[in-house]
Simulated assay, not measured.
Amino acid sequence: MSVILKEVLEIEKTILRNLYSLYLHDLSKFTSMIDIGVDGSFEYESLDKFWDIDGLSPYFIILDGSIIGFILLLERPFLTKENDLGINDFFILNKYKGKGLAAKAAVKLFEEKQGHYFVMQVIENKRAVSFWKKLYQELNIEINERQELIDDEQCLIQTFKI
C-alpha cells in the first residue's frame, strides 16, 4: 500500500472542508472548544485562508489513489519562532486507522520536509498522544516535551529535528 502526500489545491477546498468537519467531530470528544454549527456541520472558519497566507500548507493523504486524510503543515514564513515546521492538524479516516498508514504519511512528510518541528496534542486525546510517542520511538526521534495550557485545554507539545 503506497501512501503519498499531495498539496491541496484551492479548487479542492470543498473536499478539505468536508474532511475538516469529520476531523473536528472527532476532536469534539476531547475539548469543549468545538461545537457543531447551526447547519449541522463542524466548520473550520480559517480554511479559506490556507491559500491566502504563505506557510499554511494543507496536504491530502492519499492511498492507492483515494484520499484517506489530510495534514495541515505550518511552515515559514507563517512560523516565525524557533520551529521551521509544525503539524497543526493530522487526520485519517476511521476506516484506515490502526493500519500504520498515519505513520507512513508522517514518514513521507519527514522525508519531504526537514527541519525543526513541533507537534501538539490535547492530552485527553490519548490515541493521538500514543500515536506520536510510538512514532518517535520507532523512528528514534529525540524529542523535547512540555505541557501547556492552550485555549483552556491542557496540551502536550513535542519539538524535534528531522
Rank of each mutant, 00 (worst) to 15 (best):
V3L: 06
E145I: 09
A128K: 01
L72A: 02
Y44T: 00
L19F: 10
F30W: 01
T31H: 04
N125G: 03
D39Y: 06
K133F: 01
N140C: 06
H116N: 14
K6S: 12
N94T: 15
W132S: 01
M1D: 07
V3K: 00
L85N: 02
N18S: 11
A105S: 15
T159S: 11
S66A: 12
E112G: 06
L19V: 07
S57M: 15
I92H: 02
I62W: 05
E10F: 03
L19E: 01
S41Q: 12
D52A: 09
I157F: 12
F30D: 00
F30L: 03
L47A: 04
F131T: 01
I162Y: 09
E43P: 01
D26K: 07
D151A: 11
D152A: 10
E111T: 14
D39V: 03
F131S: 02
S41K: 10
L63Q: 14
E45D: 13
E45W: 05
D89L: 06
K113L: 07
T159Y: 02
L79P: 02
E111G: 08
G37R: 13
Y117L: 02
Q114F: 05
D48T: 06
K6Q: 15
N18Y: 07
L149E: 15
Q158Y: 11
R17S: 11
L73M: 03
S130E: 12
E145T: 12
L19Y: 08
Y136D: 01
A103R: 11
E10D: 12
E142G: 10
C155G: 11
C155M: 13
A128D: 02
N88A: 15
M120D: 05
F78G: 04
H25I: 09
F160E: 05
N18K: 14
M1Q: 08
L74S: 10
E43N: 12
K29D: 08
L101H: 09
L73W: 00
D26G: 07
Y20P: 00
I157Q: 11
D26R: 10
I68V: 13
L85V: 07
R17D: 03
S57I: 09
I92G: 02
R17C: 07
D52W: 00
L24H: 04
N88G: 08
T80L: 13
F91Y: 15
K6F: 04
T14F: 15
E45H: 09
R76D: 08
P58D: 01
G86M: 07
G86F: 02
L74D: 09
S28M: 03
L19G: 03
N144Y: 13
A103G: 15
Q154W: 03
S41R: 11
L139W: 08
T80I: 12
D64Y: 04
E153L: 03
G65S: 12
I11H: 13
N140D: 11
R76C: 06
R17W: 04
L9V: 08
I62Y: 05
G98W: 12
R127S: 13
S46K: 08
Q147R: 14
P58I: 04
K113N: 15
S21P: 08
I61M: 05
G40T: 06
L139F: 15
